[in-house]
């Protein structure tokens, strides 16, 4: 502390350490300020529509109109109670999930016995593995408390649910819908959560 440089060195490092402590305190405040958001989603109807081919398919030479699945649902998401000073953004998405079965690969029965489903009287040769599919139908980024309430009926899916190989999802299968959210804080750890599952059978109408 005998010279200006020595004081500057000691005091500036102290300011930085205290600043880091301040940010930790802000991050920890999320632990007691966080409230569970109110989330509810309900399926209304689904229909298969034909739409013009996208740019990618036009370039590839196949200008055939494509069948797309449009899912309509009601959504109630209230993040006003969950919003506090350390929330920067909330990413909300509506996710559809369903299961399919496929033949278990060689050796998978022994490695993951809990996921193997064997039909009645089947031998070990035709065992099947349950595959879970999760598809985002709709999403939104909420960036202020004023828009933290979403009460919408008859929302349409923004993204058409498809498999990774481009094939349509099966239209007669039991499915579930749920809301997932991810809270982006200003400082600190991300928070994830989801609503209860809403089960339904797709039964899509062709139009």
């Amino acid at each position: 502390m005998h010279s200006v440089m020595a004081r500057m060195n000691q005091m500036s490092s102290s300011v930085l350490v205290m600043g880091a402590l301040l940010l930790v305190a802000v991050a920890m405040s999320s632990q007691w300020l966080a409230r569970e958001p109110q989330l509810r989603v309900a399926f209304r109807r689904a229909q298969v529509v034909e739409r013009g081919a996208g740019m990618r398919h036009r370039r590839a030479g196949s200008a055939q109109p494509q069948k797309q699945l449009v899912v309509e649902f009601d959504l109630e998401a209230d993040f006003t109670q969950a919003w506090h000073w350390n929330v920067k953004n909330v990413y909300v998405s509506v996710v559809a999930s369903y299961n399919t079965t496929q033949l278990a690969p060689e050796g998978a029965q022994r490695r993951a016995s809990s996921t193997v489903v064997t039909s009645n009287g089947a031998t070990s040769d035709d065992s099947h593995v349950v595959v879970e599919h999760h598809m985002v139908l709709w999403d939104r980024v909420i960036s202020s408390q004023d828009e933290a309430r979403i009460f919408s009926s008859d929302l349409r899916s923004k993204y058409s649910p498809r498999h990774s190989d481009g094939s349509m999802v099966p239209l007669d299968r039991p499915m579930t819908l749920h809301v997932e959210y991810m809270i982006f804080p200003v400082v600190g750890a991300f928070t994830f959560g989801s609503s209860a599952l809403h089960a339904f059978v797709l039964n899509a109408e062709e139009s």
Partner: peptide, 17 residues
Amino acid sequence: YMAGYLASDTRLVLIAY
């Protein structure tokens, strides 16, 4: 910390500090 908390603004915390 108190100024930022009362104003619900984390940026104010850093500016004040």
